[in-house]
Design a protein around this nucleic acid. Structure first.
Lengths: 198, 198
DNA sequence: TGATGTATGTTTACGTTGCTTACATCAGCG
DNA sequence: CGCTGATGTAAGCAACGTAAACATACATCA
Protein backbone atom coordinates (compact mmCIF):
# COMPACT_ATOMS: atom_id res chain seq x y z
CA UNK A 1 0.00 0.00 0.00
CA UNK A 2 2.28 2.68 -1.13
CA UNK A 3 -0.68 4.97 -1.82
CA UNK A 4 -3.94 5.41 0.02
CA UNK A 5 -6.02 5.04 -3.11
CA UNK A 6 -7.20 1.62 -4.10
CA UNK A 7 -7.78 2.78 -7.64
CA UNK A 8 -4.58 1.70 -9.26
CA UNK A 9 -3.28 2.92 -12.52
CA UNK A 10 -3.74 -0.51 -13.86
CA UNK A 11 -7.29 -1.58 -13.88
CA UNK A 12 -7.02 -5.15 -12.76
CA UNK A 13 -9.61 -6.82 -14.91
CA UNK A 14 -10.43 -4.39 -17.64
CA UNK A 15 -11.25 -7.06 -20.16
CA UNK A 16 -14.10 -8.50 -18.10
CA UNK A 17 -15.31 -5.04 -17.14
CA UNK A 18 -15.40 -4.01 -20.77
CA UNK A 19 -17.39 -7.06 -21.77
CA UNK A 20 -19.86 -6.59 -18.96
CA UNK A 21 -20.25 -2.88 -19.65
CA UNK A 22 -20.63 -3.48 -23.36
CA UNK A 23 -23.31 -6.07 -22.66
CA UNK A 24 -25.09 -3.53 -20.46
CA UNK A 25 -25.07 -0.96 -23.21
CA UNK A 26 -26.29 -3.41 -25.79
CA UNK A 27 -29.14 -4.46 -23.60
CA UNK A 28 -30.31 -0.98 -22.79
CA UNK A 29 -30.16 -0.01 -26.44
CA UNK A 30 -27.45 2.59 -26.07
CA UNK A 31 -25.81 3.14 -29.43
CA UNK A 32 -22.69 1.10 -29.15
CA UNK A 33 -19.34 2.69 -29.85
CA UNK A 34 -15.91 1.92 -28.48
CA UNK A 35 -15.54 5.43 -27.21
CA UNK A 36 -18.84 5.38 -25.38
CA UNK A 37 -17.87 2.05 -23.91
CA UNK A 38 -14.52 3.35 -22.70
CA UNK A 39 -16.19 6.44 -21.29
CA UNK A 40 -18.63 4.37 -19.30
CA UNK A 41 -15.93 2.02 -18.10
CA UNK A 42 -13.98 5.08 -16.95
CA UNK A 43 -10.90 4.45 -19.02
CA UNK A 44 -9.30 6.14 -21.96
CA UNK A 45 -10.54 5.65 -25.48
CA UNK A 46 -7.70 3.40 -26.49
CA UNK A 47 -7.56 1.17 -23.44
CA UNK A 48 -9.91 -1.39 -25.00
CA UNK A 49 -7.39 -1.93 -27.77
CA UNK A 50 -5.06 -3.48 -25.20
CA UNK A 51 -7.57 -6.29 -24.82
CA UNK A 52 -9.26 -6.50 -28.19
CA UNK A 53 -7.56 -6.20 -31.53
CA UNK A 54 -10.39 -4.19 -32.98
CA UNK A 55 -14.11 -3.68 -32.89
CA UNK A 56 -14.77 -6.98 -34.59
CA UNK A 57 -12.84 -8.88 -31.94
CA UNK A 58 -14.86 -7.23 -29.18
CA UNK A 59 -18.06 -8.03 -30.99
CA UNK A 60 -16.99 -11.62 -31.47
CA UNK A 61 -16.35 -11.95 -27.75
CA UNK A 62 -19.74 -10.45 -26.99
CA UNK A 63 -21.38 -12.78 -29.47
CA UNK A 64 -19.67 -15.77 -27.88
CA UNK A 65 -20.97 -14.69 -24.48
CA UNK A 66 -24.37 -14.30 -26.06
CA UNK A 67 -24.33 -17.87 -27.30
CA UNK A 68 -23.55 -19.08 -23.79
CA UNK A 69 -26.49 -17.08 -22.47
CA UNK A 70 -28.77 -18.38 -25.18
CA UNK A 71 -27.86 -21.94 -24.38
CA UNK A 72 -28.61 -21.33 -20.72
CA UNK A 73 -31.92 -19.74 -21.67
CA UNK A 74 -32.77 -22.81 -23.68
CA UNK A 75 -31.58 -25.74 -21.60
CA UNK A 76 -30.97 -24.14 -18.23
CA UNK A 77 -27.99 -25.14 -16.15
CA UNK A 78 -28.52 -28.84 -16.55
CA UNK A 79 -29.41 -30.70 -19.68
CA UNK A 80 -32.91 -29.46 -20.26
CA UNK A 81 -33.11 -31.01 -23.66
CA UNK A 82 -36.79 -31.25 -24.50
CA UNK A 83 -38.27 -34.72 -24.13
CA UNK A 84 -41.70 -33.99 -25.55
CA UNK A 85 -43.07 -32.18 -28.56
CA UNK A 86 -44.43 -29.53 -26.27
CA UNK A 87 -41.01 -29.20 -24.75
CA UNK A 88 -39.60 -28.64 -28.19
CA UNK A 89 -42.14 -25.94 -28.85
CA UNK A 90 -41.35 -24.18 -25.58
CA UNK A 91 -37.75 -24.41 -26.65
CA UNK A 92 -38.71 -22.41 -29.71
CA UNK A 93 -40.62 -19.89 -27.62
CA UNK A 94 -37.59 -19.39 -25.41
CA UNK A 95 -35.41 -18.88 -28.47
CA UNK A 96 -37.67 -16.18 -29.85
CA UNK A 97 -38.05 -14.54 -26.47
CA UNK A 98 -34.30 -14.41 -26.09
CA UNK A 99 -34.06 -12.64 -29.43
CA UNK A 100 -36.72 -10.14 -28.42
CA UNK A 101 -35.36 -9.53 -24.95
CA UNK A 102 -31.80 -9.00 -26.10
CA UNK A 103 -32.09 -7.87 -29.69
CA UNK A 104 -28.71 -6.20 -29.97
CA UNK A 105 -26.81 -9.21 -28.69
CA UNK A 106 -28.86 -11.49 -30.88
CA UNK A 107 -28.00 -9.37 -33.87
CA UNK A 108 -24.35 -9.53 -32.98
CA UNK A 109 -24.55 -13.28 -32.67
CA UNK A 110 -26.23 -13.82 -36.00
CA UNK A 111 -26.29 -10.62 -37.98
CA UNK A 112 -22.57 -10.56 -38.56
CA UNK A 113 -21.17 -12.29 -41.53
CA UNK A 114 -19.17 -14.46 -39.32
CA UNK A 115 -15.70 -14.59 -40.69
CA UNK A 116 -13.02 -17.12 -39.92
CA UNK A 117 -11.61 -14.57 -37.55
CA UNK A 118 -14.22 -15.68 -35.05
CA UNK A 119 -14.19 -19.46 -35.07
CA UNK A 120 -15.61 -19.42 -31.56
CA UNK A 121 -18.82 -17.97 -32.94
CA UNK A 122 -19.06 -20.55 -35.70
CA UNK A 123 -18.50 -23.30 -33.15
CA UNK A 124 -21.13 -21.92 -30.81
CA UNK A 125 -23.63 -21.81 -33.64
CA UNK A 126 -22.82 -25.38 -34.59
CA UNK A 127 -23.31 -26.46 -30.99
CA UNK A 128 -26.74 -24.92 -31.06
CA UNK A 129 -27.67 -26.91 -34.11
CA UNK A 130 -26.31 -30.10 -32.59
CA UNK A 131 -28.44 -29.48 -29.54
CA UNK A 132 -31.51 -29.33 -31.74
CA UNK A 133 -30.45 -32.43 -33.63
CA UNK A 134 -30.08 -34.33 -30.38
CA UNK A 135 -33.50 -33.23 -29.22
CA UNK A 136 -35.05 -34.32 -32.49
CA UNK A 137 -33.30 -37.66 -32.37
CA UNK A 138 -34.88 -38.23 -28.97
CA UNK A 139 -38.28 -37.18 -30.21
CA UNK A 140 -38.67 -38.42 -33.74
CA UNK A 141 -37.63 -41.21 -35.99
CA UNK A 142 -36.97 -41.13 -39.69
CA UNK A 143 -34.24 -40.89 -42.24
CA UNK A 144 -34.06 -37.17 -42.59
CA UNK A 145 -33.54 -36.14 -39.01
CA UNK A 146 -30.65 -33.89 -39.95
CA UNK A 147 -32.79 -32.18 -42.50
CA UNK A 148 -35.53 -31.91 -39.92
CA UNK A 149 -33.09 -30.40 -37.45
CA UNK A 150 -32.05 -27.82 -40.00
CA UNK A 151 -35.70 -27.18 -40.70
CA UNK A 152 -36.53 -26.65 -37.04
CA UNK A 153 -33.61 -24.34 -36.56
CA UNK A 154 -34.45 -22.34 -39.66
CA UNK A 155 -38.08 -22.17 -38.60
CA UNK A 156 -37.44 -20.89 -35.12
CA UNK A 157 -34.66 -18.61 -36.27
CA UNK A 158 -36.82 -17.24 -39.04
CA UNK A 159 -39.58 -16.54 -36.56
CA UNK A 160 -37.13 -14.80 -34.26
CA UNK A 161 -35.67 -12.64 -37.01
CA UNK A 162 -38.99 -11.72 -38.56
CA UNK A 163 -40.27 -10.59 -35.18
CA UNK A 164 -37.05 -8.80 -34.40
CA UNK A 165 -37.16 -6.89 -37.65
CA UNK A 166 -40.78 -5.93 -37.31
CA UNK A 167 -41.97 -8.08 -40.19
CA UNK A 168 -44.16 -9.89 -37.68
CA UNK A 169 -45.70 -7.88 -34.89
CA UNK A 170 -43.75 -8.38 -31.70
CA UNK A 171 -45.28 -5.72 -29.52
CA UNK A 172 -46.92 -8.26 -27.23
CA UNK A 173 -44.68 -10.97 -25.83
CA UNK A 174 -47.56 -13.28 -24.99
CA UNK A 175 -49.09 -12.94 -28.41
CA UNK A 176 -45.71 -13.68 -29.92
CA UNK A 177 -45.38 -16.81 -27.82
CA UNK A 178 -48.81 -17.92 -29.00
CA UNK A 179 -47.86 -17.31 -32.60
CA UNK A 180 -44.69 -19.33 -32.21
CA UNK A 181 -46.67 -22.20 -30.70
CA UNK A 182 -49.33 -22.07 -33.39
CA UNK A 183 -46.79 -21.88 -36.16
CA UNK A 184 -44.75 -24.75 -34.83
CA UNK A 185 -47.82 -26.82 -34.20
CA UNK A 186 -49.00 -26.25 -37.75
CA UNK A 187 -45.79 -27.76 -38.98
CA UNK A 188 -45.24 -30.47 -36.41
CA UNK A 189 -48.72 -31.93 -36.46
CA UNK A 190 -48.53 -34.09 -39.52
CA UNK A 191 -52.27 -34.14 -39.96
CA UNK A 192 -52.43 -30.44 -40.61
CA UNK A 193 -50.50 -30.83 -43.83
CA UNK A 194 -52.47 -32.35 -46.63
CA UNK A 195 -51.68 -31.56 -50.18
CA UNK A 196 -54.63 -30.94 -52.46
CA UNK A 197 -52.61 -30.08 -55.55
CA UNK A 198 -50.46 -32.71 -57.15
CA UNK B 1 -27.82 25.71 -76.64
CA UNK B 2 -26.46 28.69 -74.91
CA UNK B 3 -23.37 26.72 -73.89
CA UNK B 4 -21.50 23.98 -75.67
CA UNK B 5 -21.38 21.73 -72.63
CA UNK B 6 -24.14 19.23 -72.09
CA UNK B 7 -23.14 18.82 -68.46
CA UNK B 8 -25.55 21.15 -66.79
CA UNK B 9 -25.34 22.39 -63.26
CA UNK B 10 -28.50 20.53 -62.52
CA UNK B 11 -28.25 16.84 -62.88
CA UNK B 12 -31.58 16.03 -64.39
CA UNK B 13 -32.57 12.91 -62.54
CA UNK B 14 -30.28 12.67 -59.59
CA UNK B 15 -32.70 10.75 -57.44
CA UNK B 16 -32.92 7.82 -59.84
CA UNK B 17 -29.19 7.97 -60.51
CA UNK B 18 -28.48 7.83 -56.80
CA UNK B 19 -30.72 4.84 -56.30
CA UNK B 20 -29.20 2.99 -59.25
CA UNK B 21 -25.66 3.83 -58.21
CA UNK B 22 -26.34 2.86 -54.62
CA UNK B 23 -27.78 -0.46 -55.80
CA UNK B 24 -24.66 -1.02 -57.86
CA UNK B 25 -22.44 -0.42 -54.87
CA UNK B 26 -24.50 -2.67 -52.67
CA UNK B 27 -24.33 -5.46 -55.20
CA UNK B 28 -20.62 -5.28 -55.76
CA UNK B 29 -20.01 -5.21 -52.04
CA UNK B 30 -18.50 -1.74 -51.91
CA UNK B 31 -18.79 -0.39 -48.40
CA UNK B 32 -21.75 1.87 -48.61
CA UNK B 33 -21.50 5.45 -47.45
CA UNK B 34 -23.33 8.55 -48.56
CA UNK B 35 -20.07 10.22 -49.42
CA UNK B 36 -18.85 7.35 -51.56
CA UNK B 37 -22.21 7.27 -53.25
CA UNK B 38 -22.09 10.98 -54.04
CA UNK B 39 -18.53 10.65 -55.27
CA UNK B 40 -19.44 7.85 -57.64
CA UNK B 41 -22.48 9.72 -58.87
CA UNK B 42 -20.19 12.64 -59.60
CA UNK B 43 -21.96 15.02 -57.33
CA UNK B 44 -21.17 16.88 -54.12
CA UNK B 45 -21.34 15.10 -50.77
CA UNK B 46 -24.51 16.74 -49.66
CA UNK B 47 -26.43 16.67 -52.91
CA UNK B 48 -28.26 13.44 -51.92
CA UNK B 49 -29.91 15.34 -49.10
CA UNK B 50 -32.01 17.19 -51.66
CA UNK B 51 -33.68 13.89 -52.47
CA UNK B 52 -33.50 11.90 -49.26
CA UNK B 53 -34.03 13.23 -45.77
CA UNK B 54 -31.26 11.14 -44.36
CA UNK B 55 -29.46 7.84 -44.70
CA UNK B 56 -32.45 5.92 -43.39
CA UNK B 57 -34.72 7.37 -46.06
CA UNK B 58 -32.30 6.35 -48.78
CA UNK B 59 -32.05 2.87 -47.34
CA UNK B 60 -35.81 2.59 -47.14
CA UNK B 61 -36.10 3.50 -50.82
CA UNK B 62 -33.45 0.92 -51.69
CA UNK B 63 -35.23 -1.68 -49.59
CA UNK B 64 -38.51 -0.94 -51.34
CA UNK B 65 -36.81 -1.41 -54.70
CA UNK B 66 -35.35 -4.61 -53.36
CA UNK B 67 -38.79 -5.95 -52.49
CA UNK B 68 -39.95 -5.27 -56.02
CA UNK B 69 -36.96 -7.19 -57.36
CA UNK B 70 -37.56 -10.04 -54.95
CA UNK B 71 -41.14 -10.32 -56.05
CA UNK B 72 -40.04 -10.44 -59.68
CA UNK B 73 -37.45 -13.09 -58.82
CA UNK B 74 -40.17 -15.14 -57.18
CA UNK B 75 -43.18 -14.82 -59.44
CA UNK B 76 -41.68 -13.34 -62.59
CA UNK B 77 -43.52 -10.68 -64.54
CA UNK B 78 -46.83 -12.51 -64.56
CA UNK B 79 -48.44 -14.31 -61.69
CA UNK B 80 -46.09 -17.22 -61.29
CA UNK B 81 -47.69 -18.30 -58.06
CA UNK B 82 -46.67 -21.92 -57.53
CA UNK B 83 -49.38 -24.45 -58.35
CA UNK B 84 -47.57 -27.54 -57.10
CA UNK B 85 -45.62 -28.51 -54.04
CA UNK B 86 -42.48 -28.61 -56.13
CA UNK B 87 -43.29 -25.17 -57.37
CA UNK B 88 -43.52 -24.01 -53.79
CA UNK B 89 -40.14 -25.50 -53.05
CA UNK B 90 -38.55 -23.81 -56.05
CA UNK B 91 -40.14 -20.64 -54.75
CA UNK B 92 -38.11 -21.17 -51.59
CA UNK B 93 -34.95 -21.87 -53.55
CA UNK B 94 -35.41 -18.65 -55.46
CA UNK B 95 -35.91 -16.75 -52.22
CA UNK B 96 -32.69 -18.07 -50.74
CA UNK B 97 -30.79 -17.50 -53.97
CA UNK B 98 -31.97 -13.93 -54.06
CA UNK B 99 -30.62 -13.44 -50.55
CA UNK B 100 -27.28 -14.95 -51.50
CA UNK B 101 -26.95 -13.11 -54.78
CA UNK B 102 -27.80 -9.74 -53.31
CA UNK B 103 -26.89 -9.99 -49.66
CA UNK B 104 -26.54 -6.30 -48.97
CA UNK B 105 -29.92 -5.43 -50.40
CA UNK B 106 -31.49 -8.36 -48.61
CA UNK B 107 -30.03 -7.13 -45.37
CA UNK B 108 -31.40 -3.67 -46.01
CA UNK B 109 -34.82 -5.13 -46.70
CA UNK B 110 -34.96 -7.22 -43.57
CA UNK B 111 -32.07 -6.38 -41.30
CA UNK B 112 -33.38 -2.95 -40.46
CA UNK B 113 -35.68 -2.54 -37.58
CA UNK B 114 -38.27 -1.21 -39.82
CA UNK B 115 -39.67 1.87 -38.24
CA UNK B 116 -42.92 3.60 -39.02
CA UNK B 117 -40.87 6.03 -41.04
CA UNK B 118 -40.82 3.44 -43.81
CA UNK B 119 -44.36 2.18 -44.19
CA UNK B 120 -43.59 1.23 -47.77
CA UNK B 121 -41.21 -1.41 -46.49
CA UNK B 122 -43.71 -2.82 -44.04
CA UNK B 123 -46.30 -2.97 -46.80
CA UNK B 124 -43.93 -4.70 -49.18
CA UNK B 125 -43.14 -7.30 -46.55
CA UNK B 126 -46.83 -7.87 -45.91
CA UNK B 127 -47.41 -8.33 -49.62
CA UNK B 128 -44.77 -11.01 -49.65
CA UNK B 129 -46.51 -12.88 -46.89
CA UNK B 130 -49.86 -12.54 -48.63
CA UNK B 131 -48.31 -14.00 -51.74
CA UNK B 132 -47.26 -17.04 -49.76
CA UNK B 133 -50.64 -17.31 -48.12
CA UNK B 134 -52.32 -17.30 -51.53
CA UNK B 135 -50.02 -19.99 -52.80
CA UNK B 136 -50.72 -22.14 -49.78
CA UNK B 137 -54.46 -21.65 -50.12
CA UNK B 138 -54.19 -22.98 -53.65
CA UNK B 139 -52.10 -25.93 -52.56
CA UNK B 140 -53.38 -27.07 -49.21
CA UNK B 141 -56.50 -27.30 -47.18
CA UNK B 142 -56.91 -27.00 -43.46
CA UNK B 143 -57.83 -24.62 -40.73
CA UNK B 144 -54.45 -23.23 -39.97
CA UNK B 145 -53.42 -22.02 -43.38
CA UNK B 146 -52.41 -18.65 -42.02
CA UNK B 147 -50.21 -20.33 -39.48
CA UNK B 148 -48.83 -22.54 -42.19
CA UNK B 149 -48.08 -19.49 -44.32
CA UNK B 150 -46.24 -17.89 -41.45
CA UNK B 151 -44.38 -21.14 -40.94
CA UNK B 152 -43.35 -21.36 -44.57
CA UNK B 153 -42.20 -17.80 -44.61
CA UNK B 154 -40.25 -18.21 -41.39
CA UNK B 155 -38.73 -21.43 -42.67
CA UNK B 156 -37.51 -20.04 -45.95
CA UNK B 157 -36.46 -16.76 -44.40
CA UNK B 158 -34.61 -18.59 -41.66
CA UNK B 159 -32.80 -20.66 -44.25
CA UNK B 160 -31.89 -17.53 -46.17
CA UNK B 161 -30.60 -15.71 -43.12
CA UNK B 162 -28.64 -18.65 -41.72
CA UNK B 163 -26.91 -19.09 -45.05
CA UNK B 164 -26.33 -15.40 -45.42
CA UNK B 165 -24.74 -15.17 -42.00
CA UNK B 166 -22.52 -18.19 -42.49
CA UNK B 167 -24.32 -20.34 -39.94
CA UNK B 168 -25.05 -22.73 -42.78
CA UNK B 169 -22.44 -23.20 -45.47
CA UNK B 170 -23.39 -21.24 -48.55
CA UNK B 171 -20.20 -21.52 -50.56
CA UNK B 172 -21.84 -23.69 -53.22
CA UNK B 173 -25.07 -22.38 -54.72
CA UNK B 174 -26.17 -25.79 -55.99
CA UNK B 175 -25.53 -27.45 -52.67
CA UNK B 176 -27.50 -24.71 -51.00
CA UNK B 177 -30.40 -25.27 -53.37
CA UNK B 178 -30.31 -28.97 -52.57
CA UNK B 179 -30.31 -28.25 -48.88
CA UNK B 180 -33.30 -25.94 -49.23
CA UNK B 181 -35.18 -28.63 -51.15
CA UNK B 182 -34.30 -31.35 -48.66
CA UNK B 183 -35.21 -29.19 -45.71
CA UNK B 184 -38.50 -28.13 -47.18
CA UNK B 185 -39.31 -31.65 -48.23
CA UNK B 186 -38.61 -32.94 -44.73
CA UNK B 187 -41.24 -30.57 -43.43
CA UNK B 188 -43.78 -30.74 -46.20
CA UNK B 189 -43.94 -34.49 -46.54
CA UNK B 190 -46.23 -35.35 -43.72
CA UNK B 191 -45.00 -38.92 -43.53
CA UNK B 192 -41.55 -37.85 -42.52
CA UNK B 193 -42.81 -36.46 -39.25
CA UNK B 194 -43.77 -39.08 -36.74
CA UNK B 195 -43.57 -38.46 -33.07
CA UNK B 196 -42.13 -41.24 -30.97
CA UNK B 197 -42.27 -39.41 -27.64
CA UNK B 198 -45.61 -38.47 -26.22
C1' DT C 1 -38.29 40.58 -72.35
C1' DG C 2 -37.06 40.72 -67.72
C1' DA C 3 -38.07 40.03 -62.56
C1' DT C 4 -38.86 36.65 -59.17
C1' DG C 5 -39.69 32.27 -56.57
C1' DT C 6 -38.60 27.48 -56.13
C1' DA C 7 -36.02 23.36 -56.91
C1' DT C 8 -31.66 21.61 -56.98
C1' DG C 9 -26.60 21.36 -56.36
C1' DT C 10 -22.16 23.30 -53.83
C1' DT C 11 -19.27 24.96 -50.07
C1' DT C 12 -17.92 24.88 -45.71
C1' DA C 13 -18.07 23.24 -41.26
C1' DC C 14 -19.19 20.51 -36.93
C1' DG C 15 -19.12 16.56 -34.08
C1' DT C 16 -18.42 11.57 -33.82
C1' DT C 17 -16.43 7.31 -35.12
C1' DG C 18 -12.64 3.39 -35.53
C1' DC C 19 -7.96 3.21 -35.30
C1' DT C 20 -2.73 4.40 -35.03
C1' DT C 21 1.39 6.36 -33.09
C1' DA C 22 4.09 8.13 -29.43
C1' DC C 23 4.52 8.48 -24.61
C1' DA C 24 3.59 7.62 -19.36
C1' DT C 25 3.03 4.56 -15.52
C1' DC C 26 3.04 0.42 -13.10
C1' DA C 27 4.79 -4.49 -11.21
C1' DG C 28 8.34 -7.80 -10.75
C1' DC C 29 13.05 -9.00 -10.83
C1' DG C 30 18.27 -8.42 -11.17
C1' DC D 1 18.21 1.05 -7.17
C1' DG D 2 17.41 0.49 -12.41
C1' DC D 3 15.71 -2.44 -16.21
C1' DT D 4 11.93 -4.67 -18.79
C1' DG D 5 7.51 -5.90 -20.37
C1' DA D 6 2.72 -5.17 -19.61
C1' DT D 7 -0.76 -1.84 -19.54
C1' DG D 8 -2.59 2.52 -19.44
C1' DT D 9 -2.93 7.66 -21.62
C1' DA D 10 -2.74 11.71 -24.89
C1' DA D 11 -2.97 13.41 -29.31
C1' DG D 12 -4.14 12.99 -33.93
C1' DC D 13 -5.79 10.96 -38.61
C1' DA D 14 -9.15 10.08 -42.14
C1' DA D 15 -13.88 9.02 -42.95
C1' DC D 16 -18.51 9.43 -41.79
C1' DG D 17 -23.49 11.60 -41.37
C1' DT D 18 -25.44 15.88 -41.30
C1' DA D 19 -26.53 20.96 -41.02
C1' DA D 20 -26.47 25.91 -42.72
C1' DA D 21 -25.48 29.23 -45.96
C1' DC D 22 -24.78 30.11 -50.63
C1' DA D 23 -25.04 29.51 -55.92
C1' DT D 24 -27.25 28.19 -60.02
C1' DA D 25 -30.91 26.76 -63.19
C1' DC D 26 -35.55 26.79 -64.56
C1' DA D 27 -40.66 28.05 -64.50
C1' DT D 28 -43.92 31.56 -64.19
C1' DC D 29 -45.99 35.67 -65.03
C1' DA D 30 -45.84 40.76 -65.84
Amino acid sequence: MSTSTNVTYHHGDLRATLLATAMEMLEEGTPFSLRALARRAGVSQTAPYRHFDDRDALEAALAADGFVDLKVALVGDGDGIPATVNGLIEFAVAYVHFALRRPAVFRLMFGNECTDSAPQVIEAAQELRDLLATALHNLFEGDDLDALATACWALVHGLAVLHLDGKLDASDLDATARRVRTTFAAVLSAGAIRATGR
